[in-house]
Design a protein around this nucleic acid. Sequence first.
DNA 1: CCTGTCACG
DNA 2: GACGTACGTGACAGGG
Length: 932
Amino acid sequence: MAFGKGHHLHLIDGSAFIFRAYHALPPLTRKSDGLPIGAVAGFCNMLHRYVEGNTGPDAPTHVAVIFDKGSHTFRNEIYDQYKANREAMPEDLRPQIPLTRTATEAFNIACKEKEGFEADDIIATLACQARDAGGRVTIISSDKDLMQLVGDGVEMLDAMKNRRIDRDGVIEKFGVGPERVVDVQALAGDSVDNVPGAPGIGIKTAALLINEYGSLEELLDRAEEIKQPKRRQTLIDMRDQIEMSKRLVQLDCETPLEFNLDDLEVRDADPDVLMPFLAEMEFRTLTKRIADQLGVEPPAIPDAPTKAAESAAAPEMPPLDASNYTTVRDAETLKSWVEKAQARGYVAVDTETTGLNEMTADLVGVCLCVDPGKACYVPLAHKASAGDDLFASDDLAEGQMPFNDALAILQPMLEDPSILKIGQNMKYDAKILARLGITVAPFDDTMLMSYAMHGGEHGHGMDTLSERYLNHTPIPIKTLLGTGKSQITFDKVPIDDAAKYAAEDADVTMRLWTLFKPQLHQAQVTRVYETLERPMVKVLADMEMSGVKVDRDVLSRMSNAFAQKMAGLEAEIHELAGETFNVGSPKQLGEILFDKMGLEGGKRGKTGAYATGADVLEDLATEHELPARVLDWRQLSKLKSTYTDALQEHIHSETGRVHTSYVITGASTGRLASTDPNLQNIPIRTEEGRRIREAFVAETGKTLVSLDYSQIELRILAHIADIPALKQAFRDGLDIHAMTASEMFDVPLDEMTPDIRRQAKAINFGVIYGISGFGLARNLRIPRAEAQGFIDRYFERFPGIKDYMNDTKAFAKEHGYVQTLFGRKIHTPEINAKGPRAGFAQRAAINAPIQGTAADIIRRAMIRMPAAIEGQPATMLLQVHDELLFEVENGAEDALIDTARDVMEGAADPVVKLDVTLTVDAGKGQNWAEAH
DNA sequence: CCTGTCACG
DNA sequence: GACGTACGTGACAGGG
């Protein structure tokens, strides 16, 4: 069928692709022969991403990449200085030009050029032909010269910003419609192409004049009428030059072409052509990725003879070798290591202990590394081997320095302000040493460096980092400790084995630091690392060691009450089912509900079991008793097992308090995670669950004070997406959800109903999460079409939100990460994936800057807090994302609230000037339920 | 060890 | 035209 109505032609400006690729990438060379290849690599990546993105109803039916050919065109006949000021093509780009043609053909995309014609003219000709045939055209370029073609089904797409430019976009840029763009350009000229235009007249003035006179010709004919003398004279004197400029910028829609639109039909790539090409270029990642997607075996790409090119930038390091490590057994040797650290000015430190819980684990040994490859282990508390003896020995193993002697030598070094201590997860070691009276400072943390540079890309544990960046798999701890029931603690490990493992850890840490330190700067995250990551170590270590008092009796009483209620419910459930079964087994429950009782709506998950989640049961509960009872039972079961029972296990035997551990690198967005136990998910939403918080109490004579940011994420959204109505509402202290509802549903605020407000609230939150019609529909339990209607209305009312979402997605697609207002990078490696994963990644990308900025803000508040409340009888205990919990001596609560509120509300200053104020609510009470 | 479920912001 | 979708976490129980 000939090109016509219903067809959609994409025209890609090939030169633009090449130059962008060239400038976006470092000067890569082909490993085998050093051929410059960066631009081709970037070009192929862009083509591939382009092809990947071509799904959906808007996908093109026809496509071509258009290139310039030859430097002499008809425009040089008109004006010999045309494009004369262009810089010569960079030497390393020239040989890549023909390869981009080959690449285009390898992707099986039509590749067109014509001697003596600019790509723009070919694009213009094809666009005109396609438009005349009744089809649609998208020109993928940001070249403003092409804007004259827009209109009547022709649009431009700025692939860089992922922004479509239609007629309105052109008017925004040039102040006139596409048909008058050439007139404006003729007047304004173009310094890039060396088009002279009218001196002293830019786009703004040109648009003004053209709009007033209707056309360039009219303007020039009536130039005498212009009031401004200088402008009038210019137009009269420069008439010839202006008219010539117009001929220069006017695209030629009549380029003679040896092919027609039908030759441009979209074709699938042929793996037999594409894969060999990519392999020949030695694009390892891209070859593999595309092979995976095409479902073919990736061709082998031989490794370059040397790895020199790759490691040139990386510091030189000797290979890891355990035989070089020493075991320190006497004071003299230890002192010599400390002296080495002193001389160096930095030292990697790692502690070995009897467990993972810093509040209960005991120090077993310390290792130091002063240089990659030079590491030692100082065993301190290894137990003598029990040998065949069944009775474990409490005696210390031979050949260890006295514990306190060693610490006395190490302490000055660990506290020496002129020696940088380098650790991997320093919070752990700092807490272990703090319990022994040692304050480690100053320090660097390779885990946090990795998090600052690679957050969202991968985990930041030592094994991961070592494998990824050192190409070395450290000795697994399991080989020393065993696993499961027979697992032993580190103090039972023979010293020789322990030394190899421990010293290697310090060595690996030192190597990672050597590698990461210069990279932090290159990745432009030094400030994030130094102001948002590293200072958290001390703040959190102190909070964790403080712990929060938990009243065991309260929990225990609740536990018993829950057990009784659950027993009653269980009996009822069995009665209703007509048989006994394990209510806690989703599998058995599903079979009872859908097989035995024959209820409708059973859906099986991937394991073949029926889904019995709360949403499913809630639907069934309107008609049936049993699922309703199961829901009640489940709630109690959760509260009992996770909270009233498990929390008691976490009460420290000496402090009587619960000491959580925060994972600084736990969440990709910059939020903290809380583990062992998780104190960030203590119930609050239901009355019954909320009572768990009554067990979190203040010490006698003290009070708990809670401060939390009000609507911080919505405020950040208002700022980032620049939504005037939202910002104003926050300034006016309005009920933000009611305001949204009022705007969307045209309901005056004084006639607002709780239900309408509830819907608006769901939409507000949905926006933060990267809303979808489906998600909102499910949340509100309304038809999907209705939910979509709400969203459309919302975007219509707050168009900045839609822009924010599109801009953020485009940024992520281009850069592979998004950023918070404070510069934290959150990587989005899946953003260019195919299938449902792309959707996930896009929504995560939309959410990350908002959630991440809020996380940055509370981090800043926490870091400033200790100095701010210095002297006040108050301790910061917990953080729950937007809340800080303090324990304060009675009578000092209000002073603490004043201070802490100031710190929290001003936490963005002075780095970020928010358009919205941050507001903090405060409460106090004998327990957490009262305080919140 | 994985899956389903559910607690929080 | 169908599919599958709200963002970020951690803990527990069941089951292979």
